Computed example of a mutant assay.
Amino acid sequence: MNGRLREIFGRVKPLAIGAACGMAFLVALPLTGVLDSSAVPGSNALVDWYRQTSARQSIALRSALTAVPDLADPAMVARGAGHYELVCANCHGSPEAAPARFAEDLSPEPPRLAAWRPDARLFQTVKYGIRHTAMPGWPTALRDDEIWAMVAFLRLLPTMDAPTYADLAYAGAEPGSCASCHGSDGQGRDGAFPRLDIQSPQYLADALNAFRDGSRQSGTMMAAARQLTDGEIAELATYFGRGVELPMGGSELGERIATLGLTERDVPACLSCHGDKGRPGYPKLDGQPVDYLVTQLELFQKHGDERGGRFAKVMAKAVEDKLEEGPHRLEPEELRAVAEYFGD
């Protein structure tokens, strides 16, 4: 028996020594200064290959168990297109235009997204970014819904022509402007974006300030609002915030939750805060896209007041799954019913 153990050890020992030497080499390599840290494009093809291969394999491994939702919703594609035009097109280019000149000086140079990539890998890349490149992670870890919208767009980008891209990304408005997503009249676009014209100027100003300072979580809106000055926020809020009145209606269940709440679960009536007779400064919900309202309620349930914004604590207490005082859960069918009562 001892002889057998010595035989096994004799075979394993060289492998262990080799592995240890290999690890020592990898640890010591950066200390030698051999690896070129130059950011000049093409300065060290071997280092670029090493890092890019490492990144691809890391993304493939970490995306292997990612569950991909249904990405066929045109509204998701439109939301992804608007953000791509605002943030991504300068580096990666678009069917309309080549990347900006500065992108040619980045090392590694951002790839043109002209080939299909697995959806789960796109999600991993967009959410977490890639170290040692100019590719950042998504600005907030709480908005996977926004990241999947970007994936829904990116999976179609390789086959997209310039007119289709332009229609999705800004629909005739100034590219990257508020109107490119929310419409020049603030009525949203194709049910993909929330309406602004139903809100008051004060609510819109508060929301833009919250997105700008990061206290309200949205990778899309944080990127847009951080470019705005105080004066521009005031102008936009005044222009879009018209307080338009719209009718509401829907199922009996939705109306009951909106008008009476669910007292057995301590869910307050939505209209006690959001209606015309509700609390000053609260957002109006009538006319918003149904899926937008469902998503916002789901975010409050999942993340509570971490979602951010002026009313996060109130909404978390109303709909969050579990609180110290007891459950305050709205079931999925209840979320959709109340969204359909208010929504367009």
Rank of each mutant, 00 (worst) to 15 (best):
L236M: 12
D70F: 07
L29I: 02
R279S: 06
P163T: 14
P175S: 05
R79Q: 14
H303Q: 07
S200C: 11
D230M: 10
S43A: 13
A258R: 02
S38H: 00
D197G: 15
L86W: 02
D230L: 11
S272Y: 05
I198V: 14
E298V: 08
A318W: 01
L293F: 05
G241S: 09
G326I: 00
R329A: 05
C273R: 03
Y341H: 05
M135W: 01
K313L: 00
T140M: 00
A60Y: 03
L236G: 08
A162I: 08
P327A: 02
V290D: 10
T32G: 07
L228Y: 08
P118W: 03
A171N: 13
V27S: 15
L5D: 05
L204S: 12
A72L: 13
F9Y: 12
E245S: 04
Y165P: 08
K317W: 09
S215L: 10
E264T: 07
V314E: 10
T263K: 03
H132K: 15
Q124V: 04
K322L: 09
E324I: 14
R143F: 03
Q57C: 03
P327I: 05
V151K: 12
R6P: 11
L297Q: 13
A103D: 09
F123M: 02
L330P: 01
I8E: 07
T238M: 11
R79W: 04
S58D: 15
H92W: 01
V40C: 04
G33E: 01
L65I: 14
A100W: 13
A60M: 05
D321I: 10
F9R: 14
E334A: 04
M222E: 10
G261V: 01
